[in-house]
């Protein structure tokens, strides 16, 4: 699987989920990241690693349109989305989670996921209340099962624990037939058990769904990705398979700080 993805990337012939060409984002004089070019095949699972402030989250913001890129070009399944509003990108199958949970504190868990399902459907302006037998509600309940939140469907989001809120973040990204997901440090602040569950959820995703995951925990990252991009000071400085990255002396110097053995 990993092999074929890498091959198609090298040849540049396969259907790419995401193509970034020299993308950059500046905040005034500050360069959050620059000259980032990536080719990610459909269904590919990529990890982005890098130290604090490397520009990983800002890269996600540029891809989703939360903050527009200041330079470069972004294509999503062949379509130029560089200056498209966020909701249009989402309706084309792009999803994301946030490093700091962005949820609806006063809403129930089920309604949150229900809204996420409706956001990409034509019924998003419906003035009718969803019934118990509503197909979208059933879809939302399936997603809650998948992230192990089914017991909390009627709980207010504000009453969830940190770990449960992180799971809800993922549920919102899974709603409505995504094709490609950006996970921003989904494991941050999770207990070992919760991390284990997270890895299981990611590995259980349908094969056609590709993703990029930002992850500080190398062990998690290497277990859920087939290719790794390393960022430092706003640039991608190394790409390779998990094994290559782990063995790379430069990576060990900058990112691992000698923490890991070779």
């Amino acid at each position: 699987m990993a092999q074929s993805n890498v091959a198609s990337r090298l040849e540049g012939t396969g259907a790419h989920a995401l193509e970034l060409d020299d993308v950059a984002r500046h905040f005034g004089a500050l360069v959050a990241f620059s000259d980032v070019s990536m080719r990610i095949a459909a269904g590919e699972r990529r990890a982005v690693l890098g130290s604090n402030g490397a520009g990983k989250t800002t890269l996600f913001n540029a891809i989703t349109g939360d903050f527009m890129p200041t330079a470069g070009r972004i294509r999503f399944f062949g379509e130029d989305i560089t200056s498209m509003p966020t909701h249009e990108r989402i309706r084309r199958g792009l999803r994301r989670t946030y490093q700091i949970s962005q949820l609806f504190a006063r809403m129930s868990v089920l309604n949150s996921v229900f809204l996420a399902c409706r956001g990409v459907s034509r019924n998003r302006f419906s003035l009718l209340r969803p019934g118990l037998s509503d197909a979208t509600m059933a879809q939302a309940e399936l997603i809650l099962n998948a992230v192990h939140l089914d017991a909390y469907r009627d709980t207010l989001v504000a009453a969830l624990s940190h770990g449960q809120q992180r799971q809800l973040e993922i549920a919102l990204a899974l709603a409505g037939a995504p094709r490609f997901i950006l996970f921003d440090e989904p494991a941050a602040g999770l207990s070992p058990t919760e991390r284990h569950d997270l890895v299981a959820i990611l590995n259980a995703l349908p094969k056609h769904i590709g993703y990029i995951i930002i992850e500080h925990d190398l062990d998690v990252a290497l277990r859920v990705s087939e290719y790794v991009s390393m960022m430092h000071n706003g640039r991608v400085f190394k790409e390779g398979t998990p094994a290559e990255i782990e063995a790379d002396p430069q990576v060990q110097d900058i990112y691992l700080g000698g923490r890991h053995h070779g």
Binding site: T64, G65, D66, P85, T86, H87, I90, R91, R95, R96, Y98, Q102, L103, F104, A105, R106, M107, N111, S112, F114, L115, A116, R118, G119, V120, N123, R124, F125, S126, L127, L128, R129, P130, L172, A175, G176
Partner: peptide, 27 residues
């Protein structure tokens, strides 16, 4: 009634977190 419809729930969610609403497909 409409406060608990899709539109009503979406409006309240937009009030609480417009950024997240964009990121799940709402204009």
């Amino acid at each position: 009634y409409a406060a608990k419809s899709t539109f009503g729930l979406a409006l309240q969610a937009i009030r609480d977190n417009p950024r997240r609403m964009r990121a799940i497909g709402y204009d």
